[in-house]
């Protein structure tokens, strides 16, 4: 068995008094694309936020073999975990270039991604390098927010609903970007609503229900398991 990059065990999380996660257990291997599926409100976003330390986690979160539950978000980010929030959270008053610069953590050493890399993949970002992030279109902002996180050179990037509200063409772009990220050895934990893209690019998938993992399998297995899809995914 391959070394597990991220191992989450019996993860619980609360928003105020409401108990959102009821013991989720799953893992992500190095360079692997894994999707976390499920209907709205089952706790997919909360899972990512708990791993990132944005929501206080209870349970075990091991990253590169090291316990990270209880660390502060910036410490977790510096261990090599990247997070792309659903809300994108572009810094609206700063330019595209400045947004990207803030993704860098300021450490030394060789990094996988440079600003020219990003501009090479998305010429549109280079054209708009000196415009404020706030005036970009939704799709451009999504690209920018993923690239911003990549600038910090994560070993695992967790992306929440990257294709939400995007045109089919932009969804296609995002899909290709995710594959490019994985090709460079960065693991991806993807939270998605759109089954098609998750099935196409993922190596494994987890389905969440009521704050737990209710199914684990490959895309082909999930496609065959119509009962699972009916019970936990289809609306």
């Amino acid at each position: 068995m391959r070394a597990r990059l991220l191992e989450v065990g019996d993860l619980h999380a609360y928003y105020g008094k409401s108990h959102i996660l009821h013991g989720a257990t799953f893992s992500v291997g190095e360079g692997e694309i894994v999707s976390l599926l499920g209907r709205n409100g089952v706790g997919r976003s909360t899972t990512i936020k708990a791993i990132m330390g944005d929501v206080p986690p209870k349970g075990s979160i091991r990253f590169k073999g090291e316990q990270i539950a209880g660390l502060k978000p910036h410490q977790i980010a510096r261990k090599g975990l990247g997070y792309v929030p659903e809300t994108r959270d572009i810094f609206p008053a700063l330019t595209v270039r400045q947004n990207l610069m803030l993704g860098e953590k300021g450490g030394k050493g060789a990094r996988r991604w440079t600003m020219p890399d990003m501009f090479g993949m998305f010429p549109r970002l280079e054209e708009r390098a000196d415009t404020p992030g706030g005036v970009l279109s939704g799709g451009e902002q999504q690209m920018l927010t993923i690239c911003r996180t990549l600038m910090g050179d994560p070993d695992l990037i967790m992306i929440d609903e990257p294709t939400e509200g995007l045109s089919p063409l932009m969804v296609e772009h995002v899909g290709r970007l995710l594959e490019e990220i994985a090709k460079r050895g960065v693991a991806i934990l993807l939270v998605e609503q759109k089954l098609a893209i998750a099935l196409r690019i993922s190596k494994r998938l987890y389905v969440m229900g009521h704050g737990k993992i209710v199914y684990e399998g490959t895309p082909a297995a999930l496609e065959a398991a119509s009962a699972i899809r009916k019970e936990w995914l289809e609306v």
Binding site: M52, A77, K105
Partner: peptide, 19 residues
């Protein structure tokens, strides 16, 4: 720049690895 970004999005700035 970090200060400017933290004016509007302190949580995001933290999750990019800034203290």
């Amino acid at each position: 720049l970090i200060v400017q970004a933290a004016l509007t999005h302190p949580d995001t700035v933290a999750m990019l690895g800034h203290n």
